[in-house]
Protein backbone atom coordinates (compact mmCIF):
# COMPACT_ATOMS: atom_id res chain seq x y z
CA UNK A 1 0.00 0.00 0.00
CA UNK A 2 1.64 3.20 -1.09
CA UNK A 3 0.82 6.61 0.19
CA UNK A 4 1.37 9.25 -2.41
CA UNK A 5 2.39 12.73 -1.56
CA UNK A 6 2.11 15.57 -3.98
CA UNK A 7 2.88 19.17 -3.66
CA UNK A 8 0.82 21.34 -5.89
CA UNK A 9 0.72 24.94 -6.75
CA UNK A 10 -2.65 26.34 -7.52
CA UNK A 11 -4.97 29.29 -7.41
CA UNK A 12 -8.38 28.45 -6.09
CA UNK A 13 -11.56 29.47 -4.42
CA UNK A 14 -11.48 29.62 -0.70
CA UNK A 15 -13.01 26.79 1.22
CA UNK A 16 -13.29 27.63 4.88
CA UNK A 17 -9.78 28.33 6.04
CA UNK A 18 -8.26 25.92 3.63
CA UNK A 19 -8.30 24.94 0.04
CA UNK A 20 -8.93 21.49 -1.15
CA UNK A 21 -8.52 20.05 -4.59
CA UNK A 22 -9.21 16.56 -5.68
CA UNK A 23 -8.30 14.28 -8.45
CA UNK A 24 -11.09 12.23 -9.76
CA UNK A 25 -10.14 9.05 -8.02
CA UNK A 26 -10.95 10.66 -4.75
CA UNK A 27 -7.49 11.78 -3.74
CA UNK A 28 -7.31 14.88 -1.67
CA UNK A 29 -4.82 17.63 -1.64
CA UNK A 30 -5.05 20.26 0.97
CA UNK A 31 -3.22 23.49 1.48
CA UNK A 32 -3.44 26.49 3.71
CA UNK A 33 -4.14 29.94 2.40
CA UNK A 34 -1.30 32.33 2.79
CA UNK A 35 -2.14 35.99 3.33
CA UNK A 36 -1.78 36.77 -0.36
CA UNK A 37 -4.37 34.19 -1.21
CA UNK A 38 -1.89 32.05 -3.07
CA UNK A 39 -1.29 28.54 -1.98
CA UNK A 40 2.10 27.05 -1.65
CA UNK A 41 1.70 23.41 -1.02
CA UNK A 42 -0.46 20.67 0.20
CA UNK A 43 -0.39 17.08 1.23
CA UNK A 44 -2.26 14.32 -0.45
CA UNK A 45 -4.01 12.47 2.25
CA UNK A 46 -5.39 9.36 0.73
CA UNK A 47 -3.81 5.98 0.84
CA UNK A 48 -4.28 4.74 -2.63
CA UNK A 49 -5.31 1.11 -2.41
CA UNK A 50 -3.28 -0.43 -5.15
CA UNK A 51 -1.08 0.31 -8.04
CA UNK A 52 -3.65 -0.72 -10.57
CA UNK A 53 -5.95 2.06 -9.40
CA UNK A 54 -3.49 4.87 -9.70
CA UNK A 55 -4.15 7.24 -12.49
CA UNK A 56 -2.44 10.45 -13.30
CA UNK A 57 -4.03 12.83 -10.89
CA UNK A 58 -6.28 15.02 -12.83
CA UNK A 59 -6.70 17.87 -10.46
CA UNK A 60 -9.93 19.75 -10.44
CA UNK A 61 -10.82 22.53 -8.10
CA UNK A 62 -13.10 21.30 -5.44
CA UNK A 63 -16.34 23.00 -5.99
CA UNK A 64 -16.35 23.05 -9.74
CA UNK A 65 -19.97 22.68 -10.68
CA UNK A 66 -21.47 19.35 -11.56
CA UNK A 67 -21.55 18.78 -15.22
CA UNK A 68 -17.82 18.78 -15.18
CA UNK A 69 -18.01 15.09 -14.39
CA UNK A 70 -17.84 12.75 -17.29
CA UNK A 71 -15.88 15.33 -19.15
CA UNK A 72 -18.80 16.99 -20.86
CA UNK A 73 -18.00 20.64 -20.54
CA UNK A 74 -15.38 21.03 -17.89
CA UNK A 75 -15.48 24.22 -15.92
CA UNK A 76 -12.31 23.71 -14.00
CA UNK A 77 -9.15 25.73 -14.14
CA UNK A 78 -6.11 23.71 -15.00
CA UNK A 79 -3.68 23.34 -12.19
CA UNK A 80 -0.01 22.87 -12.39
CA UNK A 81 1.30 19.86 -10.55
CA UNK A 82 4.73 20.42 -9.14
CA UNK A 83 7.26 18.07 -7.63
CA UNK A 84 6.28 15.47 -5.12
CA UNK A 85 7.52 16.66 -1.79
CA UNK A 86 6.08 15.86 1.56
CA UNK A 87 5.11 18.94 3.46
CA UNK A 88 4.59 18.79 7.18
CA UNK A 89 1.37 20.25 8.44
CA UNK A 90 1.92 23.36 10.56
CA UNK A 91 1.95 22.53 14.22
CA UNK A 92 -0.38 24.45 16.49
CA UNK A 93 -0.35 24.03 20.24
CA UNK A 94 -2.61 21.38 21.66
CA UNK A 95 -3.49 20.62 25.23
CA UNK A 96 -1.31 17.94 26.77
CA UNK A 97 -2.93 14.55 26.67
CA UNK A 98 -3.12 13.87 30.36
CA UNK A 99 -4.77 17.20 30.88
CA UNK A 100 -7.53 16.29 28.48
CA UNK A 101 -7.96 13.08 30.39
CA UNK A 102 -8.27 15.16 33.52
CA UNK A 103 -10.93 17.35 31.92
CA UNK A 104 -12.75 14.33 30.55
CA UNK A 105 -12.71 12.59 33.90
CA UNK A 106 -14.04 15.68 35.58
CA UNK A 107 -17.05 15.87 33.31
CA UNK A 108 -17.75 12.53 31.72
CA UNK A 109 -20.02 11.27 34.46
CA UNK A 110 -22.13 14.39 34.38
CA UNK A 111 -24.72 14.14 31.68
CA UNK A 112 -24.55 16.65 28.88
CA UNK A 113 -21.47 18.40 30.17
CA UNK A 114 -19.74 18.67 26.82
CA UNK A 115 -19.95 22.45 26.80
CA UNK A 116 -18.41 22.66 30.25
CA UNK A 117 -15.57 20.40 29.19
CA UNK A 118 -15.00 22.54 26.12
CA UNK A 119 -14.86 25.63 28.32
CA UNK A 120 -12.18 23.95 30.38
CA UNK A 121 -10.27 22.96 27.29
CA UNK A 122 -10.45 26.40 25.72
CA UNK A 123 -9.44 28.13 28.90
CA UNK A 124 -6.28 26.00 28.81
CA UNK A 125 -5.13 26.54 25.27
CA UNK A 126 -7.19 29.47 24.08
CA UNK A 127 -9.03 27.47 21.47
CA UNK A 128 -10.29 23.99 20.69
CA UNK A 129 -7.55 22.19 18.79
CA UNK A 130 -8.70 19.35 16.59
CA UNK A 131 -6.40 16.82 18.17
CA UNK A 132 -7.63 17.71 21.62
CA UNK A 133 -11.24 17.65 20.49
CA UNK A 134 -10.74 14.17 19.11
CA UNK A 135 -9.20 12.97 22.29
CA UNK A 136 -11.81 14.63 24.44
CA UNK A 137 -14.56 13.11 22.34
CA UNK A 138 -12.94 9.73 22.61
CA UNK A 139 -12.60 9.89 26.36
CA UNK A 140 -16.03 11.34 26.97
CA UNK A 141 -17.64 9.07 24.41
CA UNK A 142 -18.97 11.97 22.41
CA UNK A 143 -18.79 11.81 18.61
CA UNK A 144 -16.47 14.35 17.08
CA UNK A 145 -19.32 15.52 14.89
CA UNK A 146 -21.23 16.52 18.01
CA UNK A 147 -18.24 18.45 19.29
CA UNK A 148 -17.91 20.38 16.06
CA UNK A 149 -21.63 20.93 15.86
CA UNK A 150 -21.45 22.54 19.25
CA UNK A 151 -18.18 24.39 18.85
CA UNK A 152 -19.28 26.05 15.63
CA UNK A 153 -22.67 26.92 17.05
CA UNK A 154 -21.48 28.89 20.03
CA UNK A 155 -19.60 32.10 19.43
CA UNK A 156 -17.45 31.62 22.45
CA UNK A 157 -15.43 28.73 21.08
CA UNK A 158 -12.57 29.15 18.68
CA UNK A 159 -11.17 26.58 16.30
CA UNK A 160 -8.00 28.46 15.51
CA UNK A 161 -5.33 29.53 17.91
CA UNK A 162 -5.96 33.21 18.63
CA UNK A 163 -3.30 35.83 19.27
CA UNK A 164 -1.90 36.16 22.75
CA UNK A 165 -3.99 39.18 23.63
CA UNK A 166 -7.62 38.78 22.80
CA UNK A 167 -9.10 42.23 22.32
CA UNK A 168 -12.87 42.09 22.54
CA UNK A 169 -14.66 45.20 21.36
CA UNK A 170 -18.17 45.34 22.72
CA UNK A 171 -20.79 45.83 20.07
CA UNK A 172 -23.74 45.56 22.44
CA UNK A 173 -26.53 48.07 22.13
CA UNK A 174 -25.29 50.49 24.75
CA UNK A 175 -21.83 50.46 23.27
CA UNK A 176 -23.24 50.67 19.75
CA UNK A 177 -25.19 53.81 20.62
CA UNK A 178 -21.99 55.26 21.99
CA UNK A 179 -20.15 54.56 18.75
CA UNK A 180 -18.39 51.26 19.27
CA UNK A 181 -18.47 50.49 15.56
CA UNK A 182 -16.08 53.37 15.03
CA UNK A 183 -13.90 52.07 17.80
CA UNK A 184 -13.75 48.67 16.18
CA UNK A 185 -12.95 50.15 12.79
CA UNK A 186 -10.13 52.10 14.42
CA UNK A 187 -8.83 48.95 16.00
CA UNK A 188 -8.90 47.13 12.72
CA UNK A 189 -6.88 49.89 11.15
CA UNK A 190 -4.51 50.07 14.05
CA UNK A 191 -3.80 46.35 14.15
CA UNK A 192 -4.17 45.85 10.39
CA UNK A 193 -6.46 42.88 10.87
CA UNK A 194 -10.15 42.34 10.43
CA UNK A 195 -12.53 41.52 13.21
CA UNK A 196 -12.19 37.85 14.05
CA UNK A 197 -8.56 37.66 13.00
CA UNK A 198 -5.22 37.60 14.72
CA UNK A 199 -2.20 39.65 13.82
CA UNK A 200 0.40 37.66 11.86
CA UNK A 201 2.78 37.71 14.82
CA UNK A 202 0.00 36.10 16.86
CA UNK A 203 0.29 38.88 19.39
CA UNK A 204 -3.26 40.25 19.13
CA UNK A 205 -6.60 38.77 18.30
CA UNK A 206 -9.39 41.21 17.52
CA UNK A 207 -12.96 40.16 18.04
CA UNK A 208 -16.36 41.73 18.49
CA UNK A 209 -18.56 40.65 21.37
CA UNK A 210 -22.12 41.44 22.29
CA UNK A 211 -22.27 43.05 25.67
CA UNK A 212 -19.89 42.41 28.50
CA UNK A 213 -22.40 43.46 31.12
CA UNK A 214 -20.78 46.81 31.86
CA UNK A 215 -23.12 48.80 29.67
CA UNK A 216 -23.08 51.76 32.02
CA UNK A 217 -19.47 52.28 31.03
CA UNK A 218 -19.97 52.11 27.28
CA UNK A 219 -18.15 52.00 25.00
CA UNK A 220 -15.60 49.52 26.14
CA UNK A 221 -13.19 46.82 25.16
CA UNK A 222 -11.78 44.00 27.19
CA UNK A 223 -8.36 42.49 26.78
CA UNK A 224 -7.98 38.99 28.15
CA UNK A 225 -10.77 39.79 30.58
CA UNK A 226 -9.49 43.20 31.68
CA UNK A 227 -11.97 45.91 30.81
CA UNK A 228 -11.03 49.30 29.40
CA UNK A 229 -14.14 51.38 29.83
CA UNK A 230 -15.65 54.74 28.94
CA UNK A 231 -13.47 55.07 25.90
CA UNK A 232 -13.76 57.69 23.24
CA UNK A 233 -14.61 56.32 19.86
CA UNK A 234 -11.48 57.75 18.26
CA UNK A 235 -9.28 56.36 20.97
CA UNK A 236 -8.31 53.06 19.45
CA UNK A 237 -4.69 54.12 19.23
CA UNK A 238 -4.82 55.05 22.84
CA UNK A 239 -6.30 51.69 23.77
CA UNK A 240 -3.48 49.83 22.09
CA UNK A 241 -1.02 52.02 23.96
CA UNK A 242 -2.70 51.23 27.22
CA UNK A 243 -2.59 47.57 26.41
CA UNK A 244 1.14 47.91 25.79
CA UNK A 245 1.58 49.58 29.15
CA UNK A 246 -0.53 47.01 30.95
CA UNK A 247 1.11 44.15 29.13
CA UNK A 248 3.37 43.03 31.93
CA UNK A 249 0.33 42.64 34.11
CA UNK A 250 -1.61 40.80 31.45
CA UNK A 251 1.43 38.66 30.86
CA UNK A 252 1.40 37.63 34.48
CA UNK A 253 -2.28 36.78 34.23
CA UNK A 254 -1.56 34.82 31.13
CA UNK A 255 1.09 32.81 32.87
CA UNK A 256 -1.02 32.16 35.89
CA UNK A 257 -3.63 30.88 33.48
CA UNK A 258 -1.09 28.57 31.97
CA UNK A 259 0.00 27.16 35.26
Amino acid sequence: MTAITYTVRYRLVQFGQSLVVTNRGGAWIRGEISPEGAVESGVLSRDWPCAAGVQTPEILPWGARPGKRGGRGTMSTPIEVATAVKVAAPKAPAAPKDEITLIANKWKNKRGSLIMALHDLQSRVGYVPRESAMRLGHEMDVPLARIYEVVTFYNYFKLEAPGKYVISVCLGTACHIKGSAELLAGMEKELKVREGQSTPDKEYHLQAVRCLGCCGLAPLVSVNGKVYAKLKTNESHHVIERIQIDKPMAEADHESLAE
Partner: peptide, 8 residues
Protein backbone atom coordinates in the same frame (compact mmCIF):
# COMPACT_ATOMS: atom_id res chain seq x y z
CA UNK B 1 -25.42 22.48 39.29
CA UNK B 2 -23.95 25.33 37.30
CA UNK B 3 -23.81 25.30 33.53
CA UNK B 4 -22.28 27.99 31.39
CA UNK B 5 -23.55 29.41 28.16
CA UNK B 6 -21.11 29.90 25.37
CA UNK B 7 -22.22 32.93 23.47
CA UNK B 8 -25.62 32.30 21.95
Amino acid sequence: EIRLGAGA
